[in-house]
Computed example of a mutant assay.
Amino acid sequence: MGRPLALPRLLETLSAEEMRQLLQNVADQHPELQQEIVAKAPRPSIESTLSVLSKYQDDFREAFPLGNRPTSDYSYNRVRQHLLQLMDALRDYTPHFLPPQESQAIVSLNYLDAVTNTLHRLPSWDSYQHQRHRNEAYDEIAKAWALVISEASKRAGGFHLQFGGWDQKLVEHNQKSGGRLEEAVHELRSALGFLQAGPGSASPGVSDERATIRQQLFSGSYGQQLGVGHGGW
C-alpha cells in the first residue's frame, strides 16, 4: 500500500532552493522557531557568503541592456532593482563578519577585502545622484574596516595588521574609492602608531614599498601626492 515518504527521505529529494523555501515558509508560519533555526544553522563561511553575493552580482551584470552605454541613466534604470538587491545583501551580510559576532580578525579582514572589491567594480554612473548607493556603501564599509582594525590592534599584539599586508591593501582600497575609506586609514594609522615604537621602527621583512606606506600613514601625509579624499564620483 502506498504511503507518504518519511521526512528524512522527503528532505533528500529537495533542491537547495526548495529547502530554503520550505524553511522560510515554516519560519513565517511559526515565528517562535526562527531563533532556534538561526541558532542551529551552520555558521556561514566567507566562501558561502561570497558565493551568494556573486549571484547577486551576476544578476546585476546580466540586467544591463545591450547597445547602451553601461553608465547611462537608461542603463541605471534597467539595473536599479538588481543593484539595490546587491546593496541590501551587502548590508545584511557584513555585520555577521564584524566583531563581536566574528572573533577572528583575519576572517573579518578577508571578508571586507572581498566586498570592498565588489564596490570598486560597480559602474561610475553618468548622473551623480545615482552614485548615492555606492557612496553610502563605501561609508558603511569604511566604518566596518575601522571597527575591525581597532579590535585587531587589541588582540595578539595586532599581528595581522603588522604582518598581513593589510596596510598596503587598505591604502589601495582607499585610492580606488576616491578617498572614501579615509576613516579606516585614519584608524589604521592610529593602530600602527600604537603597535610600533615609532615611524622608523619598520618590522623585519617589510618591503620598501610597504615601509614607505607605513611612514606616510604615521606622518599623516599618505595620499597627498595623489589627491586622495578630494575626488568625486
Rank of each mutant, 00 (worst) to 15 (best):
L10H: 08
L11S: 05
E12A: 12
E12T: 06
E12H: 02
E12M: 11
S15F: 12
S15I: 02
E17T: 11
E18F: 00
M19I: 08
Q21C: 13
Q21F: 11
L22Q: 02
A27Q: 05
Q29N: 14
Q29A: 15
P31F: 07
P31N: 01
P31H: 04
P31I: 03
E32K: 09
E32Q: 12
Q34P: 01
Q34N: 07
Q35Y: 08
E36K: 14
I37N: 03
V38S: 14
V38M: 13
K40A: 14
A41K: 06
P42D: 05
P42R: 06
R43W: 08
R43I: 05
P44E: 04
S45G: 06
S48Q: 08
S48R: 11
S48G: 05
T49V: 08
L50Q: 08
V52R: 14
Y56G: 04
Q57F: 06
D58L: 15
F60M: 09
E62Y: 06
E62S: 10
E62R: 12
F64C: 02
F64I: 03
P65C: 05
L66A: 11
R69M: 04
R69V: 06
R69H: 10
P70R: 02
T71Y: 14
S72M: 05
S72K: 03
D73P: 05
D73M: 11
S75W: 09
Y76C: 00
N77I: 12
R78I: 09
R78E: 11
V79N: 00
V79Y: 03
R80V: 08
R80P: 05
L84C: 11
M87P: 05
R91C: 13
D92M: 15
D92P: 07
T94H: 06
T94E: 08
T94S: 09
H96Q: 15
H96N: 14
F97I: 00
F97S: 00
P100R: 05
P100H: 07
S103L: 13
S103C: 09
S103Y: 09
Q104W: 13
I106P: 00
V107I: 12
V107E: 05
L109T: 05
Y111Q: 02
D113K: 14
D113T: 12
D113N: 13
A114M: 07
A114H: 02
A114P: 03
N117A: 10
N117I: 10
T118R: 06
L119D: 03
R121C: 07
R121G: 06
R121S: 12
R121L: 11
R121Q: 10
L122A: 03
L122R: 00
P123M: 04
S124A: 09
W125Q: 01
D126I: 04
S127V: 12
S127C: 10
Y128Q: 01
Y128G: 01
